[in-house]
Amino acid sequence: MQATAKDLRFNVKELLDTVSRGEEVIITYRGKPQAKLIPFEDEIAIEDELFGIWADDSKSEDVAAYIRNIRKGRFDAD
């Protein structure tokens, strides 16, 4: 569904009802798409495991030690 910025200003409840039914609403300003209203998902799947390039990196075995080492100053004697 498409709606103008003016529709958003004056018909917020109707647009939110549309989004709550699962539809996406494209907001246009002067005929050009500017924003998209999409349904909000409560549950975001976040795992405790590392992902991406860190998943197989040996430095990720002891993350706390690695971060301490990165944050250590240049002139520390450790």
Rank of each mutant, 00 (worst) to 15 (best):
V25F: 00
V12E: 13
P39W: 01
D62F: 06
V12F: 13
P33C: 01
D42A: 08
P33Q: 01
V12G: 07
L15A: 00
F10E: 13
D7N: 15
E61H: 11
Q2S: 10
A45F: 14
A77Q: 08
R68D: 10
A45D: 14
Y66E: 07
A65Y: 07
I38M: 12
Y66T: 10
F75L: 05
L16W: 00
D57I: 00
V25C: 04
Q34A: 13
Q2W: 10
K59N: 12
R30F: 06
I53L: 13
R9N: 12
I38T: 09
I53M: 11
R74K: 06
R21Q: 14
F51A: 14
F51G: 12
I70C: 01
A45M: 11
F75Y: 08
E47R: 14
T28N: 05
P39I: 00
F75I: 09
R71A: 12
L16R: 04
A35T: 03
P39S: 02
Y29Q: 14
D48E: 11
P39G: 05
G73Y: 10
D42R: 13
Q34L: 14
V25W: 01
F51R: 15
S20V: 12
R30W: 09
K13F: 06
S60V: 04
L50V: 02
A5C: 03
T4W: 05
F10C: 06
K36I: 08
P33M: 00
I26C: 02
Y66G: 04
A45K: 14
E41R: 13
R30Y: 10
D7W: 05
S60C: 06
I70A: 04
A77S: 10
E47Y: 15
D42G: 08
E23M: 08
I53F: 13
K6P: 02
I53P: 06
W54H: 11
